[in-house]
Design a protein around this nucleic acid. Sequence first.
DNA 1: CATGAATGAGTGTTCATTCAT
DNA 2: TATGAATGAACACTCATTCAT
Lengths: 215, 215, 215, 215
Amino acid sequence: MPKTVDHEVRREELLEAVWRVVARDGLEGATIRGMAQETGWSVGVLAHYFKDKDDILVSAVDLALQRIEARWESQLSGLRGLSALRSLVLDNLPLDAERELETKFLMNYWSRAIRDRERVPRPARRGPELIDRLIELIREAQQDGEIDAGRSPEDIAEMLLGLIDGFSLHSLLDPGRLTRERQARLIEAELDRLTCEANGVAAGRDVSTQRVRRH
Amino acid sequence: MPKTVDHEVRREELLEAVWRVVARDGLEGATIRGMAQETGWSVGVLAHYFKDKDDILVSAVDLALQRIEARWESQLSGLRGLSALRSLVLDNLPLDAERELETKFLMNYWSRAIRDRERVPRPARRGPELIDRLIELIREAQQDGEIDAGRSPEDIAEMLLGLIDGFSLHSLLDPGRLTRERQARLIEAELDRLTCEANGVAAGRDVSTQRVRRH
Amino acid sequence: MPKTVDHEVRREELLEAVWRVVARDGLEGATIRGMAQETGWSVGVLAHYFKDKDDILVSAVDLALQRIEARWESQLSGLRGLSALRSLVLDNLPLDAERELETKFLMNYWSRAIRDRERVPRPARRGPELIDRLIELIREAQQDGEIDAGRSPEDIAEMLLGLIDGFSLHSLLDPGRLTRERQARLIEAELDRLTCEANGVAAGRDVSTQRVRRH
Amino acid sequence: MPKTVDHEVRREELLEAVWRVVARDGLEGATIRGMAQETGWSVGVLAHYFKDKDDILVSAVDLALQRIEARWESQLSGLRGLSALRSLVLDNLPLDAERELETKFLMNYWSRAIRDRERVPRPARRGPELIDRLIELIREAQQDGEIDAGRSPEDIAEMLLGLIDGFSLHSLLDPGRLTRERQARLIEAELDRLTCEANGVAAGRDVSTQRVRRH
DNA sequence: CATGAATGAGTGTTCATTCAT
DNA sequence: TATGAATGAACACTCATTCAT
């Protein structure tokens, strides 16, 4: 059934255009006509692939979350513990154009999710999912002795998640102050503090030195 | 003698209603009719006190920022250093109904500020102002020996600000997980860690010193 | 009763401001707030002197017509026949700022009078009145032998009235082409033709010479 | 394949309805809702064919001027000199229902053009164009010996144009007095006078010669 | 008398949605 | 499948009008 394949490919093409429009014009500033123009198709074509405007936006969020999760899978394969944690944390900051677009889009989605949580399809799904993965990796790192086992992994994860989205917000609001480099440096420093507390001076020094070399 | 009305008092009454509407319906979900209904007045009355819808929203943000700053003044008077810092940080979390409303309102404002920064009146003013105050108080605390003088006050402030707004966002997105109590506990723990590093074991101090050198 | 005098004086002051506003903004572009601003008073004061907006405009037209008629009286006293006719015709062209304002104002009134004739107070009153006076003076001039008695005075008057208002319109639409001087020259030439036809060569020459000296 | 509609034909249909509305309600009394009702379509359809209200009105004027010019072309073909002049002059009087509607519509346009000339698309275009054609035909008639060559063709044209629009105005303001028949008779008489002066008695010729010398 | 606060109907305009082709 | 014509409700905004002071 080749038609079905085309259908799905077309759908994703359309939704990627929706991301750009929402990132540019905001969630409710995004009109169906604007989306159609961005896709290069007519307004009617969106009615074919989606029930209504809400379905378009919901589907766009869905696809974004799918893509993010897929990226996690590929990035985390082969990693565990602290190195996986570092990879996951850095992957969730808007450190390049693609993820900045993603963040802008999702930020609009969140500000709406705050209001009417029942109308939103997967309410704040990314948050819970991300925090679960963070907790899991922190547990691993604690088992491996990379992170101080005395602190609650839930609390550490909550703090990292807070930093991730706080930095995401501020880097969009004031990119001059909170540059991409500074975000990365600050979040790595925070990871270092977790490590150092666990391993003491020598380990901490080595780890941080390696990380500097990495970038 | 015309019907005498305290113009400023009425204006603030109206703007407080606007906060509620924006927190409930979002920035562009907020219609003039909805605002009028929330105020209890007719739609025309808003035309009396404000030039247009944009002026309403700008004024609402302005008033919110004024209120926040005024609260800072009253809370920080007589305090300095770490205790002032703790007070300021806790004051900027949505730990009660009033500040939750405030946060919901400003979150909508920020998500719009991300898009068209030039159309927004005082772009993300709260952020910059808050971070300046944080930096200042961290410096004081460092001078008083309450916080390790080896770390950059700008970086510490950036991290605290990230946590504040990250927690604000997540507590609104998932209040069941990130309760008010947990927010307070986590942020206080973070402040404690700053303190411990200053007063505590040699290992901690050495590590932080190295990190400063690294950059 | 001094109060009544003040009342009438104030009314006329207000209406003169209305003329300026209508000439500037057009009949329906003229708002009560705009009129109030032009008068220097508050919006409410107009409600005291006039029933509603329509009453304001009707009164403004009335006053304009009164003024015009009064001007006719003063200009035509002592004159008769052709010289009175010339005076009347020239007085009804927008040859100075005051009469240009008047014409602009009345032109707006006419364009409305064309539509709903029943709503207009004195429908096109100026026209009929002016044409009656024109006819009367033409009759006088014919009796005095100044104008060829063979032509219908009604037709001559109709033609002069057409020229007057046609020139008024075009001088406002394209003042660069139909200057004040050209209007005066053309209308005088037309009057000359009436005269010359009646008196033949010699008389015509004398009259036109005198007229040239007059200016 | 979309629903196929002849865009231009529909546009002209709509604009003809706009003429009727403006002639009936005036330029600013003409609402989009009123226009939609007159067309028989919904308000949204006007948004399809025109950018905004201004575009509607501008387009309506444009179409009217196009139609007028097209009518000129067809009427003047094969004619020259005085007979062409007579045809053109009579064609620009509201002597039938179609041209009366046209005149009512354009009169509203002119009264607005007087105020804000820059906002109006082709300010008073009909006037200048018409006068140019009048001048040209008068020149032809003078060359053919139909009209006295001693008088300035520009002045004759200005006078005829004044009569045309003066009569147009008055016939709308007071159709009982200035009937269609009377308009035609008076304007033809005026044309005859131009002819008589050319072909007629010595006296007339002499006078007009002097008048030319006077200026 | 004079003010200007308050009203609410009406405006132009935008836009999600439907549907005949 | 894809189009874009058509709809009509909802929007921000203006304004004549009323009326308590």
